[in-house]
Every structure is written in structure tokens, then in C-alpha cells.
Design a protein around this nucleic acid. Structure first.
Lengths: 161, 161
DNA sequence: GTAGGTGCAAAGCTTTTGCAGCGGG
DNA sequence: CCCGCTGCAAAAGCTTTGCACCTAC
């Protein structure tokens, strides 16, 4: 198991050539979407995150962040998230708590989530062995598996103490 | 992987001695709850199911079923489900679709779910190897794992055809 | 008789939809 | 210029809460 740091360390520079934001922008263009300030702002925010955000968190962050961000209406957030999900650029994560979370779908860094039922914190983790089990399982079933989610519920180190 | 039949084949007789409904009733009594018709009806319904039901499905089924069932108000359904979940007698299953599902937490027959994103059908499955992976994972993390959920998204055999 | 259980209706939340106006191409 | 993108506000769902009545004990 590989615990994962809390924040992405790269910023909007994308000097390495192929960050997720670029891929997303290109994919939207190819799909026939026009550019839009709200969408660009939302994509930049998602690109900076290591883990899933809820629509409310996105709205709040965009409302207060400088750095090229701009406030985006809630309706636009949901509409944009819907488009991005349809293009498989983001993944919807349901951790239970009555709200959906969304995160950039990157080729590397696939992970799942632990949710503390006491304080609500969501912690990402990776586990290759678990992935293997799911791959093998996917081959055995009479069902076409496109995505998979694993959620561990319990208490985080802090709440357990 | 073991696919699972669609309906439970035992009924309210429970001649085998320790069905889930009995355990649930006992646990509620020990926790200091009084008996109540709505709760009994809901427990009997959950005991008869092989897979998770939504609150709406529960309300509808109890409203039309004979066999000892009686209509139960939606508010009562949610309140009772909350009590049962707090006592770990049922498990809340989030498959994404904006609604929660609930199923009896049995010692045997632990399973997970495949959700067809086309038609919405929820199919249960068991996979011991997957369980092993999760057990091993749970031991490695600095997090106390109480429950785990695995959801496979994709298309069912029918929608894939 | 008292405290908990239940039903009904209203409120709360997240998410979706309608519509008017702005803005990209 | 036209059509898509956005914001605002209203609506739609699922779920929760308040309150009065009923019921187990």
C-alpha cells in the first residue's frame, strides 16, 4: 500500500509537456466544445488536486482562490463535471455521505479511498495487489467492467486514538 | 467469482434457528428498543432479500405485499434503517445514482456489487480472492477498517449485447 | 401512565433544469 | 452573427426533522 501525499506539487506551468489539464482541454476541443472561462478554471483546479473534490468544495475554492481562478456558478460546475465525466476525463467517486466527489482521471496514480466515518476525511491510497484481484475478477464475470471503486470505511488514525 | 441467485429462497419460517431477522430483533431488544409493527415489517422484508434495496423500493414493496407486511411511512423507513445501520445489522451500499441502498449484514454471504450504468441493474457477486486482498490491505494501513465496499461499473450482459 | 414508535407534512441538501444574456469562433 | 457557454433562480429528488398521535411496556 502506498499512502499518497495531500497536495499535488506541480502547478499550472505543465513544463513536462502533457499534464492532465492539457489532455482535458484537447479532448473537449475534439469533442466539439468551445472554450469557456468557467470550464478552464474548473479544469485548472482539478488538475491541481491529488484527491476527489465535491461540487461544494469546488465552488468554494473557485470563489476564493486567486491564481487564474474565477468564481463559477454551481449549475455550471455540475454541467461541466457532467461533460468531463462523459468524456471519461474525470471519475465520479461515491464515498457515501450524500454527496458525489470528482477527480481527474489520470493514466498514472490510480487509487481508491478510505473514509473516516467519524470526521469525514477522505484519504487516497494505492494497492497494486488489490488492482490485480480486480483485474482477474473482471475477466471472470459476464459483465463488461469499465470502472471500479473500492471504499474502505472506518476511523482514521486521529479519530481512532 | 460466484454469481448469486436473485431471490432468497427461505421465508419467514426460520426453522433453521438463527435467521438474520431473529438476530436483528434480539439486538434491538438488547439495545433498549421497544417492539414496533413498522420495524418488524421492515426487518422481515430485508431478511427475505438477497441484495440491497433502496428506501423507495422498500416503501413500495411494503405498501403492496401481503404476507405479514404492512405499509410503512417513508420517514419511519429512514429512521429504522438508521437504527439498524448504527447497530451494524444492515449495510448501506452506495452505488452512485443518487440513492442509497441497504441490505442485511449476514455473517455468511458477504458480497459486492456490479452496477450497469446503462440500465441501472445492481448485480451481487462474491470473490474470495478479492476479499483476501482487502484483508491484507486493511492490515497494512494506518486506518481502522470497519467496512469495505467494491463497486464495478460497466454494462451488464444484456446492455452489452 | 410514560416513554418510545409511527405517520404526516414541512424543511434541508445536493443536484438538475429553464431561461436570458454573454462570449467564442 | 450564430450557437454554445454561464449565471441566476426555480424545480426536482432523496433524506431528515418537527410534531401530534398511537402503542408497547
Amino acid at each position: 500500500m502506498v499512502p499518497i501525499g495531500s497536495q499535488h506539487d506541480h502547478h499550472h506551468g505543465c513544463a513536462d509537456g502533457a499534464c492532465w489539464a492539457e489532455r482535458a482541454t484537447d479532448a473537449l476541443a475534439e469533442a466539439g466544445y468551445r472554450r469557456g472561462g468557467a470550464r478552464a478554471s474548473l479544469i485548472a483546479l482539478l488538475d491541481d488536486q491529488r484527491c476527489a473534490l465535491s461540487a461544494a468544495e469546488i465552488e468554494e475554492t473557485l470563489g476564493t482562490a486567486g491564481d487564474g481562478a474565477r468564481p463559477v456558478a454551481r449549475a455550471s460546475i455540475y454541467r461541466i463535471l457532467e461533460e468531463l465525466e462523459a468524456l471519461k476525463l474525470i471519475t465520479r467517486v461515491e464515498v457515501g455521505q450524500g454527496l458525489a466527489r470528482f477527480e481527474a482521471h489520470r493514466s498514472e496514480g490510480h487509487h481508491h479511498h478510505m473514509v473516516c466515518d467519524a470526521c469525514g476525511i477522505v484519504i487516497p491510497f494505492e494497492d497494486p495487489e488489490l488492482e490485480d484481484s480486480i483485474q482477474r475478477l473482471a475477466r471472470k464475470v459476464t459483465f463488461t467492467v469499465a470502472e471500479h471503486d473500492v471504499v474502505l470505511h472506518g476511523s482514521c488514525a486521529e479519530c481512532s486514538a
